[in-house]
């Protein structure tokens, strides 16, 4: 009797099926359309031409839509796609096949990661196009306003998109970890949002306690910060100028940071799901 080994192919098949489920759901289609509309519509939010700052404003709107709607999409998709398997009892049939539970958990994570990758890629692409088009228009209207060297660096835009996706990947892994032991989808969604808030605000708490010099607070906040990732690190591309492009080493460090957190959360999710009764 030869053993059935862990198979990345099976995890990938489950991921593909998860992505297919998501792509056939109206809610996720709606979120994508909304984000696309916001990215494109930012152009008409302000009715004045003032060169480079306007381009920065467009980029901020695009990344804002990506960050906010992307987080909503990721948390909702992770919880929904996991619980739809459990509640519709499709997990029963799936896990009765020669499939490892780890393959199921990783398949779900990969599926959501692929979904948010599609989301970020489409939005980043659209943002790049919008910026290029507006930049061309502005340099025709106000040749002086777009200063030389102040032009849009599309590498910077792409890097911004990558940072957004890494953040969503970590968020998906944490939400999935919650889902593997949660009894309800609602609980997972709410906890997912709480985790998002903690990850965004923890550096503030740390600063505040450090300034106040409260030892207990400092211990508590450093405990939190050793468990939860600091989403501030993904603010690597907060400019459009090619001159501000961070060093490759810094980018790699952030990628490794995100992947380690995602892998740790996914590992815990696998452990927690191993004993779950289906």
């Amino acid at each position: 009797m030869n053993a059935v080994r862990f198979s990345a192919l099976r995890a990938w098949l489950i991921a593909g099926n998860t992505l297919r489920e998501a792509s056939r759901q109206r809610f996720f289609q709606f979120l994508l359309l909304l984000a696309l509309a916001l990215t494109l519509g930012a152009r008409w939010l302000r009715d004045f031409n003032f060169g480079a700052p306007e381009l920065k404003f467009l980029a901020d709107c695009g990344f804002g839509a990506m960050a906010f709607l992307g987080a909503a999409l990721t948390i909702a998709a992770t919880a929904q796609l996991f619980f739809s398997e459990v509640e519709n009892r499709t997990a029963l049939t799936l896990l009765a096949k020669p499939v490892w539970r780890a393959e199921f958990v990783l398949g779900k994570l990969l599926g959501v990661a692929a979904l948010s990758a599609v989301f970020c890629a489409l939005l980043t692409g659209l943002l790049s196009l919008t910026l290029a088009w507006r930049e061309a228009e502005l340099s025709r209207l106000l040749p002086d306003a777009v200063a030389p060297g102040g032009g849009v660096s599309h590498a910077m835009v792409a890097l911004g998109g990558l940072m957004q996706w890494l953040r969503l990947l970590v968020l998906a892994a944490f939400t999935l970890l919650v889902a593997t032991f949660a009894q309800s989808q609602l609980f997972s969604v709410v906890t997912g949002f709480l985790i998002l808030v903690v990850c965004h605000l923890q550096h503030l708490a740390q600063d505040a306690y450090a300034r106040a010099g409260s030892a207990a607070g400092l211990i508590a906040s450093s405990l939190i910060s050793s468990v939860f990732p600091d989403f501030q690190v993904f603010q690597l591309a907060d400019s459009l100028a090619a001159a501000d492009l961070p060093a490759t080493g810094d980018v790699l460090r952030v990628i490794v940071y995100a992947l380690s957190y995602a892998a740790a959360a996914a590992g815990l999710a696998v452990v927690s799901f191993r004993r779950r009764e289906i």
Binding site: V4, E21, N88, R89, T90, L92, T93, A96, V99
Partner: peptide, 18 residues
């Protein structure tokens, strides 16, 4: 996992990916 290699299972009131 090996135990499930040679089994086909039809659950009660089955439900599949719609």
């Amino acid at each position: 996992v090996e135990a499930r290699r040679d089994v086909g299972y039809l659950p009660e009131a089955p439900n599949f990916y719609r």
